[in-house]
């Protein structure tokens, strides 16, 4: 068995990782802004830069998952009937397909989460 399981073919973790990355990014962005503003720092810019850096890291991680889903799992964005076959390879391609869709969804969600910090200059 090779670790981490996320890049081990056949693991369902590849499907779970994009939402986990979004949740972690959401929590961290919220936490950074809340703590920064609670300490009376009126100007949001330093916190916004931290959230922007975090966003880029989250998007890179989601991109990495998307690459694994495409290359290792041969996942496609479009639906193909063959991925529903009762075969090991089809099951992996199904996981790749679902993981890719979740990557797209969670990349958008991460950008939406970060958007307010890029628009507002003040707490």
């Amino acid at each position: 068995m090779t670790y981490p399981r996320i890049i081990d073919d056949g693991s369902v973790w590849i499907v779970i990782m994009p939402p986990v990355i979004w949740a972690g990014h959401f929590l961290a962005a919220y936490w950074i802004a809340a703590v920064w503003c609670a300490r009376g720092m009126g100007v949001l810019a330093p916190a916004a830069w931290a959230i922007l850096a975090l966003t880029l890291i989250a998007l890179a991680a989601i991109g990495w998952i998307a690459r694994i889903a495409t290359v290792r799992y041969e996942g496609l964005l479009r639906h193909e009937a063959s991925i529903a076959d009762d075969r090991e390879r089809s099951r992996e391609r199904f996981l790749g397909h679902v993981a890719l869709l979740l990557c797209a969804l969670n990349a958008v969600a991460v950008i939406f989460t970060a958007a307010p910090s890029l628009v507002f200059g003040q707490c």
Partner: peptide, 20 residues
């Protein structure tokens, strides 16, 4: 829908920024 929601979000945020 992603494009529409992004535009709604941006419009709302810019309005909120103008108000404050």
């Amino acid at each position: 829908p992603t494009i529409v929601v992004a535009m709604l979000l941006l419009t709302g945020l810019l309005t909120l920024r103008a108000l404050s």
